[in-house]
Computed example of a mutant assay.
Amino acid sequence: MRVVAAMSGGVDSAVAAARVMEAGHEVVGVHLALSQQAATLRESARGCCTIEDAGDARRVADRLGIPFYVWDLAERFRHDVVDDFVAEYEAGRTPNPCLRCNEKIKFAALLDKALALGFDAVATGHYAQVVERADGGRELHRAVDPAKDQSYVLGVLDADQLARSLFPLGGSTKPQVREEARERGFSVARKPDSHDICFVADGDTRGWLTRRLGERPGEVVDESGRVVGQHAGSYGFTVGQRRGLGLDRSTLDGAPRFVLEVDAARNRVVVGPQELLGVDVLVGDHARWCGPAPEGVVTVGAQLRAHGEEVPATARADGDRLHVRLERRVRGVAPGQSVVLYDGTRVVGSATVAQATRATTASRAATDRR
């Protein structure tokens, strides 16, 4: 096959490219320029897509002896990922930009361009496994290394995208990958992993949003509607947040408060005690399936964060919407997060949380009796 190896400049994509090449495929390395004003150097281990990263990727490609190109997708990234991120927070939701980048950039814009140029597949350094069934279909599964498993952020892939995707690192651990990079003489063998949100290089999401949206003062209220503080913009808060709430301590009983709701329409942040955070009924939109959509009510595992715990659940697909009932309450689930469904290690699909509520006491008791 002719394969585009997406090379970020990190150790994972470097080893992934090497493995695809050694498997006998014709490989071309591609670095995605996603920033319209790329920094020269990284800030610590935060961020990615700097000029330094592009240089690291090029040096690996040179060592492998494969062609290397930089594809400018900065405008598409700004529109589909960065602008979407701002709009979601402005609407009181908490998005996951990594899922949006995988859906819109790496396995849409990049894959579409690769296919248009005559390539057969895209390989990345994600830690996940593709399993081929006897009928030729492909399934997405968790990686063997649970600490590095990235199947959650790949839960937005559909069957067609999965058929054109290669994940050579799914059967390895991170120490094994770093050792292989060292043995191959890659200069990135000890390069730190990028983390957090790549385009918020300093990690200060609230400050980053404030610079784009400006201050929008409003009230912080408790669950009864009583004003207990002030804020500079409801977009700077997310459900489950405890710190930086701007509360008037003199009006409280000393117990900690958490964000229960971000009411963007009224520019209010609602806070309350931790016990009110638990939810067990989710409605998701923008459902995506890694294979056929499930029929009827199915038993699954539901994961709500990239490295969060999988919770037993039942789910029902309804067109573009997904209804999920968790077997136990989970705290801090915010609209805009993604829920990814699993059947064992297999990724079934995903949806974006639109509503997160509690089952009534009676319905919860009925569920517990079953």
Rank of each mutant, 00 (worst) to 15 (best):
E183G: 01
P168D: 05
G301V: 07
V200F: 08
A87Y: 04
G136P: 12
S172D: 03
V269F: 09
R358F: 05
S338F: 14
V27I: 10
L110R: 01
E52Q: 15
R364M: 14
T210I: 09
R19Y: 00
V156L: 11
H231F: 03
V27Q: 02
L117E: 13
L157N: 03
D53Y: 01
Q337I: 03
R63C: 08
A163T: 00
R138Q: 09
V28G: 04
V122L: 14
D318Y: 02
V220N: 12
T357Y: 04
V339E: 07
V283M: 14
L277M: 12
D112C: 10
C101Y: 07
V4L: 13
L322Y: 05
S234T: 02
V86K: 07
P294L: 11
R211L: 10
R266P: 08
V239Q: 09
G332I: 08
A351G: 11
R190G: 03
V3A: 11
V177R: 00
Q230S: 15
V339I: 13
A181Q: 00
A264Q: 06
V81G: 04
D285E: 09
Q161F: 02
G24M: 14
R268Y: 01
S250E: 15
A123E: 04
A16T: 07
W71R: 02
E88N: 01
E310K: 11
V333P: 03
L304A: 12
G319Q: 06
G214F: 15
L73N: 06
P294K: 03
V270Q: 13
V11T: 02
D193M: 15
G225P: 12
P175I: 12
E183K: 02
A54S: 12
P292K: 07
T367L: 15
Q129F: 02
A334G: 12
T357D: 11
G47L: 10
V27Y: 02
D160G: 01
L277W: 03
E215Y: 03
A201P: 01
D145W: 06
Y235N: 05
V86Y: 03
R321I: 07
G272P: 09
K104A: 15
V200D: 03
A57P: 06
P192I: 14
R178W: 01
R93W: 06
V348N: 10
R316G: 04
G170A: 14
R164Y: 00
G236N: 02
R93T: 06
D72Y: 05
A143F: 10
V15G: 04
W71A: 09
D202L: 15
E90P: 01
